[in-house]
Design a binder for these strands. Structure first.
Lengths: 143, 143
DNA sequence: CCGGATCCCCATCGATGTAGTTGGGACTAC
DNA sequence: GTAGTCCCAACTACATCGATGGGGATCCGG
């Protein structure tokens, strides 16, 4: 199951911000966008949504930028996905009223729960650690 | 995560057909469509796809219709979803080449596997049994 | 206090995909 | 040979997604 571009862009940006959370630094939209090859005016919208959801904090003016609103271990991917994917109102589950559609709905429920379990069991901290391991592994090749 | 209408319509139709598989009966497109409140000319397309994937068999002429090509226990929901959802060619996973996108891809892989495990672990037989239980339970209320 | 850097808000656009419709043709039981 | 059924393929309407654009608000450095 694929994430939308919105969600992907949001997650990678948050991982970048998680990496500098300890130092209390900030990153600007343009900088993240450039490093990740994302259209900057588009990324702006995602970061705005994340700010409104209290996942990010923003600082305006020169030397401004974004930073995480709380430690990476306390932000789950489920939070991010809910913010960026669920933004556009409620999806109506107008299942037809037959037993066949009912069992189908039960199956969908099962899928949703498995999905949710993974997403809320993964924090930005987890992704950050995986990222660092990858970077370490990559560095090995150059020795 | 939501199924497309195509997939939903296909699954409920197959559950109906599974219910009469033992007796070797057939159901016509129009009949299924009417019982499930699905546009019949649209449902036709799904059943055609399922026939081409060797999941259904069809019989033409008056008294014709569709029936399962093999026992319901040997048809998984994964088969059906692959047929109806994956029809339109390959989805390119052109992940950007940064460590952040890499860990994201790993997460997606994890989700896909959980998804696939459920879908290939559920057969039409399973759904049929759930449906019959529901119908039984419903009948209780009328006593 | 001014100028530039940066975030902020909202409208718009084009491409793609989804759900559904339509118009026929082929096969078969009677 | 006719009616009932499946078969094939094009077409449309609409929503969504990814992206772009025009201004505005805020803030720091000089």
């Amino acid at each position: 199951m694929a994430f939308s571009a919105k969600t992907e862009y949001g997650i990678v940006s948050l991982v970048e911000l998680a990496a500098i959370y300890e130092q209390g630094g900030v990153l600007q939209v343009a900088e993240i966008a450039h490093r990740q090859s994302i259209p900057d005016r588009y990324l702006e919208q995602m970061l705005t949504s994340l700010r409104r959801a209290r996942i990010l904090r923003s600082i305006r003016g020169p030397k401004g930028g974004y930073q995480l609103a709380r430690p990476p271990a306390e932000i789950t991917i489920a939070d991010v996905v809910n913010c960026l994917e669920g933004d556009q109102s409620a999806r109506a589950a107008a299942s037809r009223d037959t037993p066949e559609f009912d069992v189908l709905a039960a199956l969908q429920e099962q899928l949703d729960q498995a999905h949710a379990a993974i997403l809320s069991g993964t924090s930005l901290q987890d992704l950050l650690e995986q990222r660092d391991q990858r970077i370490q592994a990559q560095a090995m090749y150059f020795i």
